[in-house]
Design a binder for these strands. Structure first.
Lengths: 170, 170
DNA sequence: CAGCATACGTCAGTGTTGTTGACATTCCAA
DNA sequence: TTGGAATGTCAACAACACTGACGTATGCTG
């Protein structure tokens, strides 16, 4: 195991963790881990007519009930046409409800139906189980570092979205 | 569940880092960060006729020159038909060379050409730059935690692939 | 040697998810 | 009130994954 505890709060001196080799390992870890990250929900969804995009939409509608299509668009970072296809399917299947805005009739506010909540629960249970196992194995300090690095890897825009959601949560 | 593995350290008392809320934040961090992670290479590739799949192939051929198609298949976790499409394009464009195996003539060993190396360099420079910036901002301890959690999030098979590559590197 | 397994390539078809382009509706401000 | 911006929808297409079936060359084993 490289590094260990060099414990310099100011990481000025020892920059060995910034070698190309270390960066490459970080890149590959990210690649492999993301596969694990999505594996369980993907498996569940493959039986239904849904995919990862549906999962993402359901996740964030659940997180911010009543959100508009435009807001969801910004969070998901896809085109509105792409999101629309997914949303249309979810609405037709009765997992998501779309309500015309009261103050601005151009907007559609999105909500999960009871059935939508059920699927969301199933998916996030699976995903959380893996995350919980990883967190438990790694321990609280590793988890803190994990979050710190991930946050630093986001675009500024995504950082804002992430922080906003984080604060909404508690 | 492989839950019986609580050998690692006794972070026993305070389990607040395992609440659903913390797990959800981890999930969302992973989602947003992965977007940042792929953003720079994606931007570069979008100008050419290549995509993320080509990037992955190039990356791992560079990492393990002479690797066989089958080995690459296992690492990338896609079907041979899917990989073949990508590989065919890269070979036709002269970025990758495929050599018949000497000891086992059924195998094809893959190498980057000079031009292939050039593209690999461009892509990984971009990706490393972001990773370096994130690592530097977060500091060595956070980076260690980051890697620990990611590794714990992988499937067993991916963990082996990751470890093997890691050892090959140094 | 014969027969089976392995490694690789390919053709055809399908599904999900992303893209651009065109268009309707609604809001707002000049 | 009218023109432009914002919001969302429909249609067509591209990238990349998947399955299934098949063909060829090669290796291994009884």
């Amino acid at each position: 195991m490289p590094g260990g505890r060099s414990t310099s709060a100011h990481h000025g001196e020892n920059l060995l963790f910034l070698t190309d080799e270390q960066l490459r390992q970080g890149i590959e870890a990210m690649f492999f881990a993301y596969r694990g990250f999505t594996a369980d929900p993907d498996r569940i969804l493959s039986d239904m007519a849904y995919g990862r995009a549906h999962h993402r939409a359901i996740h964030f509608i659940n997180r911010a009930p009543g959100t508009t299509v435009n807001n969801l668009l910004n969070i998901l970072g896809v085109t509105k046409q792409s999101l629309n296809r997914v949303l249309r399917a979810l609405i037709e299947q009765g997992l998501v409800e779309s309500k015309v805005g009261k103050v601005d009739k151009r907007e559609r506010h999105l909500f999960l139906t009871d059935e939508g909540h059920k699927l969301e629960q199933t998916l996030s249970d699976a995903q959380r189980a893996r995350m919980r196992s990883a967190f438990r194995d790694a321990g609280p300090e590793a988890v803190a570092g994990f979050r710190t690095v991930l946050e630093a890897m986001m675009d500024a825009k995504m950082q804002r979205a992430y922080t906003r959601l984080k604060e909404t949560g508690s």
